[in-house]
Amino acid sequence: MTVDAARRDWRGRLFTLLIVLVVSVLAALWLFPFVWAVVVSFKDPSEIVTDIWALPDRLIWDNYASAFDGLNYVRSLGNSLFVATSAALLQCVTGTLAAYAFARIVFPGREILFTLFLATLMIPTTVTLTANFLILQNFGWIDTYAALIVPQAASGFAIFLLRQFFLTIPNELQDAARMDGAGHLRFLWHVVVPLSRPALTTVFVFIFITNYNEFLWPLIMTSSEDMRVIQIALSTYTATEGITDFGPFMAAAVLTLLPTVILFAFLQRAFVRGITRTGIK
């Protein structure tokens, strides 16, 4: 009996060790492209060609200078941050209002409307591109910030996630507020919003990252350099010249990835919550 248990224990440990080993190797593979992009971004062009594995002799900032210019970094990053922040904030507002109505108010048409809102998640953006282009063209919004922001100002995702959260707020709070003579708006602002900070953070982070990383939409809806978001700037920059200029290209990739990676490092939980709560991207 004890021998058996000991043997099982021994085998269990070996098994665990094996798993740790395999997962560690995979994790190294997963990290490698990031780490190596950073390393190469500091290498001299000749070093990149002559010895792939060598670490840079000294840190070359020239690559970053080239990438900074090539991306028109201040402008394109500014555009991306502005668009992503605006979209995320707007979604918090429209999402909170709609989710509140769906979660806390009984009104005719509620179920149908909510289903319709949720069903938008089944409409892939790639499918509606042509029609959306014509709609934005009618509004005269092609190649403007409005084209990048307004269509992203609401989503079934945000509404669904916030509604799930609002449903957990005890009715007693609402009843008490009503006794005090507070209307919906006051209850929403003074009770629901403060209580929902985690959910709102999730929506904000998720929508921000999604919009910051968006490529196809700005590719189609904008064209001037002034309107260029950083994803487009990066793809244009790396597509222009022959593709052996890896130092500056890796620097450009690092500069592009940095904001979301930093944000993710700080707000990982909120982001992950967005995925697990809804399973919707």
């Binding site: 282009f133 063209q137 005269g140 919004w141 092609i142 190649d143 904008t222 064209s223 001037s224 350099e225």
Partner: peptide
């Protein structure tokens, strides 16, 4: 300066589309 040939083309298409 509206970028390379392709950029200028795209931008002019967009400008034309929005009038």
């Amino acid at each position: 300066y509206t970028g390379g040939y392709t950029d200028t083309l795209r931008r002019a298409e967009a400008a034309l589309a929005s009038g």
